[in-house]
Design a protein around this nucleic acid. Sequence first.
DNA 1: TGCATCTACTGGTATAGACAACTGTACTTA
DNA 2: TAAGTACAGTTGTCTATACCAGTAGATGCA
Lengths: 240, 240
Amino acid sequence: MIDKTSPLPIYYQLVEWIKGLIERGELKPGDSLPSEREYAERFSISRMTVRQAITELVNGGYLYRQKGVGTFVAEKKIEQQLMGLTSFTEDMKSRGMEPSSKLVGFEIVPAPSYISHQLNIMEHAPVYEIKRIRLADGIPMALEKTYISANLVKGLTEETVQHSLYHHIENQLAIKIEEATQVLESSVATQQEAEYLNIQKGAPILLIQRNTKLADDTPLEVVKSSYRADRYKFMITLKR
Amino acid sequence: MIDKTSPLPIYYQLVEWIKGLIERGELKPGDSLPSEREYAERFSISRMTVRQAITELVNGGYLYRQKGVGTFVAEKKIEQQLMGLTSFTEDMKSRGMEPSSKLVGFEIVPAPSYISHQLNIMEHAPVYEIKRIRLADGIPMALEKTYISANLVKGLTEETVQHSLYHHIENQLAIKIEEATQVLESSVATQQEAEYLNIQKGAPILLIQRNTKLADDTPLEVVKSSYRADRYKFMITLKR
DNA sequence: TGCATCTACTGGTATAGACAACTGTACTTA
DNA sequence: TAAGTACAGTTGTCTATACCAGTAGATGCA
């Protein structure tokens, strides 16, 4: 576990070890860690060294401390960030509206060629196509289409999709989400989008495409969201 | 400077003090700090306490360390982030294109009402209106209009604008840029935009508006950029 | 002159110990 | 029963010290 003769710093070995426990799911979000003193004793190292390791993990967002109580595993980071940036739910709530979601399509289809390319699978290989309408106060705001390779993620059901898709995926694959890229562009509504969103064909649309990758660089999903431009703006805040 | 009887932790006092030096410009980007040992001696505190303070500032992006050499003041953070997210220059270069910029308007005008509102000034108060066209490989990609209160920033010239606007502003105001908000939306080209960008009126446009605030919460500028939707997409990457 | 070496400095890692501040639980007391 | 108290355990802060590793400049030699 900890090798004092290694050229790698002790605190760094501890960082990597704990990170591993979290990534392999042996420590789950909300779990408490052994106390700093316990780690120090267990590995026969100084408590300050343990603190250095834990401080790194806290800064990295893996853990959080609670004075007088203990140290705990934090929620997963990317999911947080994805939320922070694109969560329809959060956005709408902050504007005082009531968000909801309606599943309007769930099937396995042969991948359209540009999707197969982005998911790095064979053309026409089977993919889940999950269509949702996002509403705020009951008004349609966006059409969201999610594509996931059916050979990669198995056993998706309408049930799963309605609840925690990410959780199901990470559990099944035992590989964590590593990176997400979002591309925003301006476009005009297609016939299909116009129907679902209750607008004119050709009306301005904000297209947001998110590509999510796993830790081993496998593309996991492509999510295409079409937002009504008259009702939705995308906001980012940068703080010093 | 450092008050050992204060209820505030010593390392925290040191963090705030150094942060103050940087924000007041007494320490400029690239400047070297006294060594950790020197700080420890000067304030009669332990070197580990000094390290704790400096580590915080390093994590916060204010400083960076160089082993065997010293500790230095980092470049300003927001400017970096603004660059990372919206820099036309960076974006175009990464796509292998040659970015350039053409100043097409520089005048002082009475603020349009929505601008005066966002800059928190009187309606019709004078503002600089700076119009630029952004080009890639000589092709117009975006029209960018910047509004800055003329009562806040004085003595702007066409010269200054062509070079380092931010630098000039921070020097003159002695207040740092604190926060920036970006709003992206989809729209269609107005007559003016169509002319400048050489597209049809009504063609899809990606509107990006950036509002920058100073540390004391004064709005500094409003930048409205209109990008050709057929040529420009906005990308964000989230890494774990 | 040019190269190697020495030296004095920097930050990086690690120890062992001390006390403070905070929290939850178990116990005592009115 | 309800409120207060004591205690044990946690993280937070701080000290004094030691040695390692990297860097730059001075020194000395061929």
